[in-house]
């Protein structure tokens, strides 16, 4: 399919990119392009220009800070995350998520920043990053700001990144010792769209859950953190979740009704808690 007419721009640095975005009306960041180009083919959107940031070195790669936080350049591909020994050492759940994403062709192009900035409800990374207390570094003409996940993900296909801003990096703190993360999902076929997704993180000290993150994906506009459920898990030994009924406002699609998705979110939630509990016992 042929794209609508569009201008292609390739700035050399993050600052250049931001300048370009602010100067060229209707310009938009092109990262891996694995969703954006499809959206353009189907004529669902029409930016005037694509600002390609994929080759900006400053936006690529991973490093650790002194306090062992993982800093991921926004244009780092899934394939790079999946194969990085550094990522696997400190944040294996990030490497696993990247390794299981889509297919080997798309993993070579798709970027974690693109996955987050698109914020499609079915995307894999937003709920995981919310559970990991990730911070999002956004560069604008006026300088940089750093947001939490709940500040970053605003709604379906909507984030806090403004039209003339650029997500430059995602910073994931080191997990506390004794912390476990599990994610579960139900997909179309063996490994396609997620119909419902749950990510659970339990911070466990001396067999007691001291803190928890419970986040749903695919059923809501943004990663949905369930504070009530988190409170149920904190303060006692890791244990399976009692029956919970979630009051989610979700939508039908060709693969399942809203009611089914809601119920599947509950199932995935229970399974993710169970998996996290099992891991904490190891």
């Amino acid at each position: 399919m042929i794209l609508p007419p569009i201008q292609y721009l390739r700035p050399a640095t993050p600052a250049d990119a931001v300048a370009t975005l602010s100067e060229v009306d209707g310009s938009v960041v092109l990262a891996g392009g694995q969703t954006l180009l499809n959206v353009l083919k189907l004529d669902l959107a029409h930016p005037a220009a694509l600002v390609d940031v994929h080759r900006i070195d400053a936006l690529r790669g991973v490093r650790h800070t002194e306090d062992s936080a993982l800093v991921i350049g926004a244009a780092t591909t899934y394939a790079e995350l999946a194969s990085s020994p550094d990522v696997r050492r400190t944040h294996p759940e990030v490497a696993d998520m990247a390794a299981g994403l889509v297919d080997r062709q798309v993993r070579n192009r798709g970027t974690i920043g693109g996955n987050c900035c698109l914020n499609d409800p079915t995307n894999n990374f937003p709920p995981l990053l919310a559970a990991l207390d990730a911070r999002f570094r956004i560069l604008g003409v006026a300088g940089e700001r750093v947001l939490r996940a709940d500040e970053f993900f605003l709604g379906t296909l909507t984030t806090a990144v403004g039209r003339a801003e650029l997500l430059t990096a995602i910073e994931i703190p080191a997990l506390p010792t004794g912390s476990v993360v599990a994610h579960e999902h139900l997909q179309v076929g063996a490994d396609s769209w997620a119909l419902a997704r749950a990510v659970v993180r339990l911070d466990v000290t001396d067999h007691v859950v001291t803190d928890a993150r419970v986040v749903l994906g695919a059923v809501y506009g943004s990663p949905l953190r369930l504070s009530d459920v988190e409170r149920m898990l904190v303060g006692s030994a890791p244990a399976a979740l009692p029956e919970v009924e979630l009051d989610l406002d979700t939508a039908d699609d060709v693969h399942g009704s809203a009611a089914y998705r809601r119920e599947m979110a509950e199932v995935q939630l229970r399974r993710a808690v169970r998996a996290a509990v099992e891991r904490s016992g190891r």
Binding site: L44, P121, T156, L157, T158, G221, A251, D253, V254
Partner: peptide
């Protein structure tokens, strides 16, 4: 049109906002 297909999961929120 195409958005009726591709937009199934998102269109409700997008139109609403």
């Amino acid at each position: 049109g195409p958005a009726a297909t591709v937009g199934q999961r998102v269109v409700r929120d997008l139109v609403s906002s």
